[in-house]
């Protein structure tokens, strides 16, 4: 059964003032409730712009988007109530302690009334903060200034802070930028834990393919447009098609022979032979033309991703 769409983006366009082209160029997609959605693309693809519009920080030029049924442009406050956001640059106040950052957030969302010190806050708040700090291993640093925390710890602090008001959707804009591999791995483990204990929807942007691989659905974006979308498995299948690279001195003979075998191929030589259902060795065996080159092209997902990005760029430049 199809799940309801918690985010719906329709023909979204954003052109910054004085910009010559659209940063987000007629983009449409949806996100299912409770799913892990990734928006993948190189720097400057329009990911952050898209997230800024969805989180009500930026007005779209045309088109629109809705979150939990609220329009992001005309009902920003309702949308803000539903979301937690982890920005690309840490949005913590470095001069306050970790706990003060959480308290500040809780007060802004009116979860608890303002009190100048931790000890004056209600018991329910104290308990919740301590419990969250324990989960991420922040207990000993809770009352230290944020300046003193490591990059990985700051990210986790931002996440527990953003979960205080129990949002429906958690936006993460390139959350692992600047983190070492161990912190990165820790962060993913923690995010997985959150997903297991809540039914939160996660909206991630990243330029690392391996980070998007764990998602339920992903869109690849480049130069403001969505160039590919599907589940990671589907994208992998459609992108990483294996083919043979074959060449011969007598290219006309080889191409005639391939046509006769009814094997689709592209190129003028070397030829890319898409063996599809056939097995590669069987094709090679049936070829009589002496070959000068024979390779199996077996791209990794990373290669495929680079190919897509390059492909869409070439297409873009070809336009007059």
């Amino acid at each position: 059964m199809a799940k309801p769409h918690i985010i719906e983006v329709t023909n979204l366009v954003k052109r910054y003032q004085k910009a010559e082209k659209n940063s987000v160029d007629d983009v449409s997609f949806y996100v299912e409730e409770g799913s892990f959605f990734s928006l993948l693309g190189p720097n400057g693809a329009g990911k952050t712009t898209t997230i800024s519009i969805l989180t009500t920080l930026l007005a779209p030029t045309s088109g629109g988007a809705s979150l939990s049924g609220f329009d992001v442009n005309s009902q920003p406050n309702q949308v803000r109530q539903q979301i937690g956001v982890i920005f690309q640059n840490p949005s913590l106040d470095r001069n306050l302690t970790a706990e003060e950052n959480i308290r500040f957030h809780s007060n802004l969302y009116d979860l608890f009334p303002y009190r100048p010190t931790f000890s004056l806050m209600p018991e329910t708040y104290k308990k919740k903060v301590k419990q969250l700090a324990e989960v991420v291993g922040l207990e000993s640093d809770l009352f230290k200034p944020v300046k003193a925390l490591s990059g990985g710890m700051k990210r986790k602090l931002e996440i527990i802070r953003s979960l205080m008001h129990q949002p429906q959707v958690l936006f993460l804009d390139e959350p692992t930028t600047g983190l070492d591999p161990i912190s990165r791995q820790n962060l993913w483990r923690y995010l997985q834990e959150i997903r297991q204990t809540t039914d939160i929807t996660i909206f991630l942007t990243t330029h690392y393919l391996e980070e998007a691989e764990g998602s339920d659905y992903l869109c690849i974006m480049n130069q403001g447009k969505i160039v590919s979308k599907g589940t990671p498995v589907e994208i992998k299948r459609s992108l990483t098609e294996n083919y043979l690279v074959a060449d011969a001195k007598d290219r006309t003979k080889l191409s005639k022979e391939l046509t006769k075998l009814k094997v689709p191929f592209t190129g003028q030589g070397p030829f890319q032979v898409h063996f599809g259902k056939h097995s590669a060795p069987s094709i090679v065996q049936s070829l009589k033309t002496p070959l000068t080159q024979l390779e199996i092209h077996n791209p990794s997902l990373e290669d495929a991703y680079v190919e897509i990005i390059k492909g869409s760029e070439a297409e873009h430049h070809a336009q007059p």
Binding site: N77, R80, S91, Y109
Partner: peptide, 14 residues
């Protein structure tokens, strides 16, 4: 610029 303000601007307050 330091993005701290974003924390305020995404919160549901006027």
């Amino acid at each position: 610029q330091n993005d701290f303000a974003q924390e305020m601007f995404v919160s549901p307050i006027s």
